[in-house]
């Protein structure tokens, strides 16, 4: 089925720059929803603030465009109050892990059935190209003219350590993996994190001499590899893609339903 049935065409054109990876994420996220045949009336998209967060306006779901860093906090209230809804939270790297870092780790810990998508372009795009906690060292940004000295988070390690029960990573180049991992994440009965490396040619690529969108996508092909591949053993610098964890654990809303039962019986 055509995915444009999930788009609010009235609100196009979108605000993203030419060559931005976020459109690829949107496209393949909608393919995942389409393949799972989820009723649009039962889909809620909750986002924060930033380029990535504007995604919620373009989809024909119940959509909640909230505050910088707070998407998961709002989503927790939506899901807890109406557990039958499928809740998906696209976030940027600064949104999810700088200002929203505390909500992120606690959402991982709680294991509520939410799907968090971190569209990681390693930069604050909407505000003009400041470095983020995912930029890493040696990066030129508008707030690091002498290059960054800040070390980066590893979203996967952070999610695993915080207790997320589904954790995956891919890139905007590997678009089929985006669909597959989001599909898995949406079906997973617990808190899911899907990190998607997404190019920002305007602010990250240009200042760090990474070329245009095509070159940045090529780079994702070259500097990533599947989890545990031979290439990784030969070159430890490669970034691994794949599903890092997929395990069931007590889901928060289900546990709360049990808690209600106990309270009402006693």
């Amino acid at each position: 089925m055509a995915i444009d049935q999930y788009l609010r065409k009235r609100f196009f054109p979108h605000i993203w720059c030419a060559g931005c990876g976020h459109g690829i994420v949107l496209n393949n996220m909608l393919r995942a929803v389409d393949q799972l045949q989820i009723n649009q009336n039962e889909m809620v998209m909750v986002s924060g603030i930033g380029c990535s967060s504007r995604i919620s306006g373009y989809v024909d779901f119940h959509s909640l465009h909230t505050l910088h860093g707070r998407a998961l906090a709002f989503a927790t209230g939506v899901k807890m109050s109406q557990p039958n809804l499928t809740v998906i939270c696209p976030m940027g790297d600064g949104d999810a892990l700088a200002i929203g870092g505390n909500h992120f780790i606690h959402a991982c810990r709680r294991n509520m059935d939410l799907t968090a998508i971190v569209m990681n372009n390693r930069i604050y795009g909407m505000t003009g190209g400041q470095f983020s906690p995912l930029s890493g060292t040696g990066i030129t940004a508008t707030t690091s003219p002498q290059k960054t000295i800040d070390r980066e988070f590893d979203i996967i390690s952070l999610s695993l350590a915080s207790g997320a029960t589904f954790v995956a990573r891919t890139t905007a180049y590997h678009y089929k993996e985006i669909t597959n991992y989001i599909k898995e994440a949406l079906q997973h009965p617990g808190f899911s994190v899907v990190e998607i490396l997404s190019q920002c040619p305007t602010h990250f690529g240009r200042r760090n001499k990474q070329g245009d969108a095509t070159e940045m996508l090529q780079r994702y092909r070259q500097n990533t590899t599947s989890i545990g591949s031979e290439a990784k053993q030969k070159n430890p610098e490669l970034i691994e893609r794949g599903i890092f964890r997929q395990e069931t654990a007590p889901e928060y809303c289900a546990e709360y339903a049990e808690l209600i039962n106990r309270a009402q019986q006693s």
Binding site: V46, L64, L72, A73, F74, T76, H103, H106
Partner: peptide
């Protein structure tokens, strides 16, 4: 539903989400 959240910010955010449903 009762939630003890990670801070006051998320407390208000989550009830706003629940009000919407």
């Amino acid at each position: 539903s009762f939630l003890q959240m990670e801070d006051e910010i998320s407390s208000l955010c989550s009830i706003i989400g629940a009000s919407l449903t």
